[in-house]
Design a protein around this nucleic acid. Sequence first.
DNA 1: GATGTTCAAATTGTATACAATCCAGTCAAG
DNA 2: CTTGACTGGATTGTATACAATTTGAACATC
Lengths: 230, 230
Amino acid sequence: MEKSKGSKSQEGIVYERLFDVIIEQKLQPGARLTEISLADIFSVSRTVVRRALLRLSYEGVVDIKPNIGAIVTTTEPEDVPQYFEARRIVEGAVIRKVAGKLTTFQEETLNAMVREENRYFMSGNRARGLRKSIDFHFYIADIANNKPLAEMGKKMIARTSLIVAQYNLSGSGGCACVDHSALVDVMVKGPGELAESLMHEHLQHIEDNLYFGKQNIETDLYRILEVDRS
Amino acid sequence: MEKSKGSKSQEGIVYERLFDVIIEQKLQPGARLTEISLADIFSVSRTVVRRALLRLSYEGVVDIKPNIGAIVTTTEPEDVPQYFEARRIVEGAVIRKVAGKLTTFQEETLNAMVREENRYFMSGNRARGLRKSIDFHFYIADIANNKPLAEMGKKMIARTSLIVAQYNLSGSGGCACVDHSALVDVMVKGPGELAESLMHEHLQHIEDNLYFGKQNIETDLYRILEVDRS
DNA sequence: GATGTTCAAATTGTATACAATCCAGTCAAG
DNA sequence: CTTGACTGGATTGTATACAATTTGAACATC
């Protein structure tokens, strides 16, 4: 989850690129990730790809089955509530901790993020909007000033985003911008308890909007990964 | 953290053995874990050892520095509060969730664990007592019926236990058995809020008993790992 | 004596060869 | 037509060789 760290290493490049692509829903849950293809695409050895996949599997966004291979994590409908509950607990604690204690810089940063997210969605760039929406939550986790808590938060944010990718067909990607705006407000003013309950509502809202129908998953691994990061 | 899974694989064996040894404080924080030595001891290739170490590093009990190697995780004194805070949040949520909902089987299991733990400490078997004390907390995490939450809980339990190993010289290993007994009581009777605050107190008590002095760390890797598991 | 430099040993990082396993398509039997 | 076994191709699992890096000690220099 520590994106900045190890960015230069080969493994880090593969990891980040895959993480982004998955988070931006360019690779749907269930998409197969074969080691050779990835080694080919990134021009590294299987060893490096393997480590990157392993790391992604610890983050929960990739599922590795022995002798079968790696796929983007899929979630059974009956397991969905667990992940949202866990996220509510962690992210609720996070926002309760930071509410009323924002620096002006942090406040402005958050507002800028909301605006940027909004702009992307308005202009139809769903992938980027999604990314910003997740970064918004990531940023909140970071300012809680508790490394393990932030790590857990990011992990659950990523995991539930993956669930949204699998079960939410509407374009919003789960997060309503107006919600984010309100979250910033209450984070600035406090109190923590109110911020927490608003976050709970926000996440509950996302969960309630999931649609558990069937949908086809398809992927052109080479095409998706070879294009530059716009 | 899923000990049952992958127990048969070579990697699983190395992982579990190392995890146990670290948790039972037979390997102090800071102890070096060189790949070749471990490959030698377990009669597997470096590849397998590497994966096991990688997994342990994701769990937070081992720290891998690039081009340097792996050591049992050490924690700076100023970072200690973070980990305990994170553990209180997660384990508090866990116990609040299970309080008042125990099956009689679970209740009896927990009571048996407390007795067993007590017996080990009384008979002077500190390592086993420690193990049971941690297993007690692990078990609570499991019955919360939320996989990601249990995983986070176990991770923080292991991590703080490592901190205790580093900074607590008293024999208790941090957990007082009487505390555990009281925890079972409140888990049986509820309500969740009371159970949570008791857990908070319990963990606060452990944290308050840490001693941040200096102490020498030493290890005989071969000796510690080659002896059978009593 | 303190400090800086060089070099060798040890250790980790990476790539690749080979073994083990799984999967899909073929074909034959019922 | 369905079912079952079999085989070839593809993919992952493991071991190992070699490259890159770090560390520590010996030595020279100030």
